[in-house]
């Protein structure tokens, strides 16, 4: 039977002063992911191993880890794809380690919240007592839908060399999401987000290493969103940015036709 060696970063708060690497050798199954390997260790070898996971299908973004020196989702990384039978798994860099492979993502969520990651409506009455949907075209949707796939896994923040040195830098995830909402025609919070992004630790610190887009497991491309945000902000300061027309509200549905009567059964 083929074997797989998993070198796992361990850290127990209150006991360890620094982290260390522990090796586990486990049987390798066909189609096995790195997360499967970690679950095997937890179930059969060391139940104290701590890691975060949930959906096991690349949707929840819980199992972000540094796998062979690259930030990846453990559930989305088949062992075969790595082309080696020795894999090193570490906690995501640029985030403090809570225990073993569990990173503290609080700073990501705080920064994310700071850019108002929701549609800010100018029509407060309609927002509070909605009567119908806000309209948008397919073309408008295409302008931001790519950025709306973010699962907040933190891989882009772990990959970013600027986040590595500046703890206050907003980072690729929040800035990418700032652009996502700024391009949404239903949104009226552009000025507030521009103000937040135009800070000393904001959008201008991105020097386009492209690592965030490369690491993103959902194809969100935060590097593109950040550069487009810069352009929008520069055009805005030069008063060249086209103002979005507020999205109109969908017309009430036309009167429904009476239902066609169910035909009589032909066979009784």
């Amino acid at each position: 039977m083929q074997e797989l060696t998993l070198k796992v970063q361990r850290y127990l708060p209150g006991k360890d002063k620094k982290s260390y690497i522990q090796e586990f050798t486990i049987p390798l199954r066909q189609g096995m992911t790195v997360l499967d390997g970690l679950i095997y260790i937890k179930e059969n070898m060391d139940n104290t191993l701590s890691f975060r996971s949930s959906c096991r299908m690349g949707i929840c973004g819980s199992c972000g880890m540094l796998i062979n020196n690259f930030p990846m989702l453990a559930c989305h990384t088949p062992v075969e794809e790595l082309g080696t039978d020795r894999i090193e798994v570490r906690s995501l860099p640029n985030f403090p380690i809570i225990r073993d492979l569990v990173a503290d993502l609080d700073s990501l969520f705080e920064k994310h919240k700071s850019i108002k990651p929701y549609v800010v409506s100018s029509d407060t009455e309609e927002a509070e007592e909605p009567t119908a949907e806000f309209l948008q075209s397919g073309q408008e949707l295409e302008g931001y839908v790519q950025f709306a796939y973010c699962v907040k896994c933190g891989l882009c923040m772990a990959a970013c060399p600027t986040v590595a040195t500046d703890a206050l830098f907003l980072g690729p995830q929040p800035l990418g999401q700032a652009y996502r909402y700024c391009t949404d025609r239903r949104d009226a919070g552009v000025e507030e987000r521009f103000h937040q992004a135009d800070s000393r630790h904001g959008v201008w610190l991105c020097h386009l290493a492209g690592a965030c887009s490369e690491a993103c497991p959902k194809g969100v491309d935060p590097a593109l969103a950040i550069q487009l945000l810069k352009r929008a902000m520069i055009f805005d300061s030069l008063r060249l940015r086209k103002k979005k027309k507020p999205a109109s509200i969908a017309q009430p549905l036309a009167e429904s036709r009476p239902k066609i009567a169910v035909p009589e059964f032909t066979v009784k």
Partner: peptide, 29 residues
């Protein structure tokens, strides 16, 4: 409890050390 968390920021090493990234990441360095 957060004070017991282990700092894990790459710092300046994060500029030079680029892991398994492609060309643009090295052009940045």
């Amino acid at each position: 409890s957060q004070s017991r968390h282990l700092p894990n920021r790459l710092g300046i090493k994060g500029w030079a050390w680029a892991g398994r990234y492609t060309i643009e990441r090295y052009l940045y360095t």
